[in-house]
Measured scan of single mutants.
Amino acid sequence: WKITIYDQENFQGKRMEFTSSCPNVSERSFDNVRSLKVESGAWIGYEHTSFCGQQFILERGEYPRWDAWSGSNAYHIERLMSFRPICSA
């Protein structure tokens, strides 16, 4: 599993790669995730830290803005603060 997060939209700004769970992006000096690329595996992104709040399934691909992973939710969530890989047995 591999995911790359960015602190600006369209894959700009600070970037960081992960191959395992991140319970709080702010502990990695990110205020928020504004864009991301899922390089391999599937991940679950969460609205809040500690894997809480609205969940987003993140499959392999590029997500240049928050609405790319938020989709058409009843209330739009511009925040992604934690994530972890989906492990299959």
Rank of each mutant, 00 (worst) to 15 (best):
P23F: 05
F30W: 01
I44E: 09
Q54P: 10
V38D: 04
Q54T: 12
C22I: 10
G45I: 12
G41L: 03
G61T: 00
S72I: 05
V25R: 04
A89K: 10
W66Y: 12
T49N: 11
A89V: 09
C52Y: 08
F18I: 07
G13R: 00
E78C: 12
N24I: 02
A42T: 14
M16D: 06
A68N: 15
A42S: 15
S72A: 13
F18P: 00
I5Y: 02
R65G: 10
E62H: 07
N24P: 00
E62R: 07
P23E: 15
E39M: 13
T49S: 12
D7V: 01
S50G: 14
Q54D: 11
Q55E: 12
F30Q: 00
P23Y: 06
Y6V: 00
T19H: 09
M81R: 11
F83S: 02
F56V: 14
F30Y: 06
R15C: 14
Y6G: 00
C22Y: 03
G13S: 01
F56E: 07
K37H: 05
R79E: 13
G41K: 02
S35Y: 01
P64I: 00
C22H: 03
I5V: 13
N73L: 08
K2F: 06
A74L: 13
W66M: 13
G13C: 00
I3N: 04
L36S: 08
F11D: 00
I5P: 00
F83E: 01
F51I: 02
D7C: 04
W66H: 10
F56G: 03
R79H: 15
C87K: 15
A42Q: 15
E39W: 09
S35W: 01
P85C: 05
L58Q: 00
A89G: 15
S88D: 13
W69C: 07
Y63F: 10
N10T: 03
W43N: 01
D31T: 08
S20K: 14
R65K: 11
L58N: 04
E17H: 09
E47G: 06
A74W: 08
Y46W: 04
V25K: 03
K2Y: 00
D7F: 03
W66C: 14
Q55P: 11
F11C: 04
Y46K: 02
H48N: 09
H48C: 12
V38S: 02
Y6A: 01
K14S: 10
S82R: 01
P64H: 09
Q8M: 07
Q12F: 08
G53M: 02
S82C: 00
R84H: 12
F18D: 01
I86R: 12
R28P: 05
T4R: 04
K2C: 06
E17K: 07
